[in-house]
Amino acid sequence: MATDLAPPEVKAVPAPVRRTRMSPRTALLRYRWLYLMVLPGLAYFLVFKYLPMRGLTIAFQDFVPFLGYEGSQWVGLKHFEELFTGPDFGRLLGNTLILAALTIVFAFPAPIVVALLLNELRLGVLKRAVQSLIYIPHFLSWTIVASLTYLLFSVDYGVIAGLVHGVVGGTRVDYVAQAEWFRPVIVLQTLWKSTGWGTIIYLAALAGVNADLYEAARIDGAGRWRQFWHVTLPAIRPTIVVMAILTSGHLLDNSFEQIWLMTNSLNRSVADVFDTYVYYVGITQGGYSYATAVGLFKGVAGVLLIFGCNWLAKRLGQRGLF
């Protein structure tokens, strides 16, 4: 592995690094404790994650729950053909990708920025207060978030809609109905609901920063900005990178409930994504097979994205997932 890129402390690991290949038996014996520690977790993954993966085969069947894996009819690639050649594929992919891009631009960095800002806050009381408030929305269901959104943005009685109208003037904008406002509203909802929660992981990473490093930086005459740039940021960079890579695997996933609740006849053309479409298919045709086919497609894309991002991270000199 790329030892030349690794941070210094890895180089400092003395004993176990052996360049010569070990025989499996020697390795097993030598690292028996480590292997033993992996075992329960590995068993979990095999039993609860890999055993059910047999269910992925239903993507190639017309699965009927009662008939089961054996009884359902094999249809080969029918569902994939339907997915890729269906009249809606382009639109679904486009909408999904645009929402993914918006996630990358807004939803992913927001918690990092807020965590860093919180970190610079010197009033302990204020910091704790802000922290404990902004993460509460995570606990509200999308149903509640949607009803709050309608409450605030409705063209008839929305408080915020009214406020904006009062300031900007002109004709009243129906934020929750019009197609062009769909994406901004979704982004706003996501930011509101998950930014605070997302900061937790970065705050945990920031809590781990070695205070001595700040000391050393100060002795070197570094100001506040340079301390941030040379100590704080490098300290949470690995976390950011790992989060970025892992999140990339879910880029094609949307929060079904969120989108479904905000969809209406006027904005469906921009609102429909794979996850909502699968739901409609489910209503009319039971669609387990189709849903699984879509899941497989998204999974393959997700794997490519994860490993692609991981590769890119390494190219850029970061540690990546491994």
């Binding site: 309608y150 063209v155 129906d174 109905a177 209406n264």
Partner: peptide, 8 residues
């Protein structure tokens, strides 16, 4: 109602 397309 103006919000006939969205009223829950």
């Amino acid at each position: 109602n103006r919000d006939f397309a969205t009223l829950d």
